[in-house]
Each structure stands twice: as structure tokens, then as C-alpha cells.
Amino acid sequence: MTTTRRSFLGTAAGIGSAAALADWALVHEALAHAAEAVAQQPPPRFTHLTADEGRELAAIAERIVPTTNTPGAREAGAVFFMDKAFGTFEKAALPVVKKGLAELPARVAKRQKGAKSFAALPVADQDAILIDLESGEFFGAVRYLTMVGVFGNPSHGGNRGGVGWKLIGFEPKPSHAPPFGYYDAQLVKRGKS
């Protein structure tokens, strides 16, 4: 359990409700700090990826689960999950990912002459490239790894601070108790349980 959180039951009734926004305000504050820290050099150190690969992979992950008015793959640190997992359970995916990343500059150059990297492209161009790639092995692997990096247990190196779970309303508690959701709560209210 990475954060102590009150029940999401009340707030999840309307994501965007005042209560939920209050929660996200706190998150955003924390994120601002994190973003600032990231902006400070030196760039993050990776074990299995080069700094360039890490930056490009992070940029792809950020299009898969983009940061909108709520956190995304960036805040979850999905790329750090990937870097860690490439040394353990996802070893087999590393060559696929490296090959895919190596082929990226040609696609980037095709979209925009002189562009330095995928990460530096406007998001519309990034998305266009990913749509081209989406049925392939490389994108499939990165999509899968991003989802684990955003929504898996923080112990694996992603989903930092449980942001992915909070985003969708998952409560990582060792046990729960009824009422579980709106409809069984209503039933209890009506005294028909």
C-alpha cells in the first residue's frame, strides 16, 4: 500500500466531482514537484536502456497513457518499470524494444525534417507514427509494458505513489467490506438485503 486513502466509493460516483478534484489537486502539487525534479539535470539513469532510448520510450509511453488533467505514464514512471523489468521478467522483450527504438529515427525524419527525436515531435506527429506502428510487435510490447508500468504494483518500479490505481478508482486494500458499490449500497438503504 503506497498511500493511505479514504474510500473512493463516494468520489468515484462522478470523476470530476468536487471531492475527486480536491484529491487531484494534491496529486498535481506533488506532480509539479516531481516534474521540476525531472527537469533538473542530470537525466535519469537507466540500467538496461541508454539515456536516449529511455527518453524515446518514455515519450511513447506518454502517448499510450497521456498526462491530461490527470496523471499518466510520465507521473507513474512507467519507463522505470520497463528498465527494471528488462533485467528480469521482461528480458525477452528488450531486443524487440531496442530494435523498434532503433527504427524510430527514420520515421521521425519522415514526419518532420530535422527533427531530433520522437520525444521532440508535436504530439499529433507522435500519434501518427504510433498509429502506423500499432499492429506491430514493437508497439504491442510497449503498450503492454506501459500498462503494467502504470497499473501494476508499485513494487515493480512503476505506478509511483499508486497514481495509476488512483486514476481509475482501484483501492489496493488487503480486505474490503460491504457495501462494495452503489447498487448493493442502494439495496441496503432500501432495507431489502
Partner: peptide
């Protein structure tokens, strides 16, 4: 998908 939360991950 329904209008209100069910929270199927519980129970």
C-alpha cells in the same frame, strides 16, 4: 458498463 460504480475488484 453501468451508470454508477460497482467496484467489482472487491469481494
Amino acid at each position: 458498463v453501468y451508470e454508477h460504480p460497482l467496484n467489482e475488484f472487491k469481494g
